[in-house]
Design a protein around this nucleic acid. Structure first.
Lengths: 178, 178
DNA sequence: CGAGTCTTTGAAATGGCTCAACTAAGGTGG
DNA sequence: CCACCTTAGTTGAGCCATTTCAAAGACTCG
């Protein structure tokens, strides 16, 4: 926003497309969180490519529809989840994403490990909260044996089931830990 | 959500398309807020229509891209705006939308009037807040001569500029009214 | 080894939610 | 046509989750 506040509206993983076809420029900015390899198309050329090959445009449409669904799911999270639920949901999303891509699965399939691809600050910006709150929630999950902190960026999900429940509602877990 | 909490992820206006092509069903539900006239396509038929007429699919793509931008804008609102800013932004969005469609403009172009198309509750659900809070913010804007409440559902925007500022940051207005 | 950045932790302040009461507006049936 | 009931909106007060502010570790990199 103009006043400096920020909101992350998406996370891109290898093979994802980004940009804004059919507009002069994207209303959002893009930031690399890691080293990246980008395949760039010149706008005009890309658009005429889409025109010439409807199958390609079709694929793009399908992907954009998926992204729209994801964005709306995220709106649900931003709009009605507590900080704890947000962090839990985020971990679950990372888990889903990374096993999908198959980056982590190679090691050990039964002790799922996820890594924050970006700084706490960016995670917080994505979740609509603050770095401090993210930190507190992560620590809480660690204390409650839901995750194990490997190195501050990396987490072993020791109890995926509990994590899933945390993402949905926290009340009963509060009692458990009391 | 499964536990009963709700989040409205979009508002549809006349001529808008909805549904989820290329999937069995939409992950979201749709609710009519007013009497509506709907044009329904049978899924299979619609999909083959898209296949046969790439120009139509192109139009759909353009619209979906626009919706994606809108959804992300809304994520910014949900993630980092205060309740007051949210309500102000919502009024502005309604204003933009309705003048675009030209429903209200007919009357008097210089005293813009907007109408909540849905109940306070639904507005709150859209903004990620509660009906009480929406009410309080609307009343506050009325007291501060930003809007004039016509009939609880309808508002005259007496000071669009102040409204725009309220949507962005409230601090300076607080001082003004103190 | 020091400078800078990121994360964690604590304590205090606060915005918005919850709960509850009150008012207004329909809608219904006697 | 008027009591009655129901639903929607407003208003107030107290409370609590999260933010804010501040400061102390941990890590990284010249």
């Amino acid at each position: 926003m103009e006043d400096g506040r920020q909101q992350v509206v998406g996370l891109l993983f290898p093979s994802d497309f980004f940009g804004r076809p059919f507009e002069e420029q994207s209303p959002f900015s893009f930031e690399a969180a890691t080293d990246v390899e980008i395949c760039v198309f010149e706008r005009q050329a890309f658009q005429s490519l889409l025109e010439r090959f409807p199958e390609v445009e079709h694929e793009l449409l399908v992907q954009v529809l998926t992204e729209l669904d994801a964005a709306r799911e995220w709106m649900v999270l931003l709009g009605c989840q507590s900080a704890r639920e947000k962090v839990a949901s985020f971990l679950l999303m990372l888990l889903r994403r990374s096993t999908l891509i198959g980056c982590e699965k190679a090691g050990k399939p039964d002790a799922p490990i996820v890594t924050f691809p970006v700084s706490r600050r960016d995670v917080a910006l994505y979740l609509g909260t603050t770095p401090e709150t993210v930190s507190r929630q992560v620590q809480w999950m660690s204390r409650n044996n839901i995750i194990k902190i490997i190195d501050g960026q990396t987490f072993e999900i020791t109890n995926p089931q509990k994590l899933a429940l945390t993402a949905a509602r926290e009340e009963w877990l509060d009692q458990l830990s009391a």
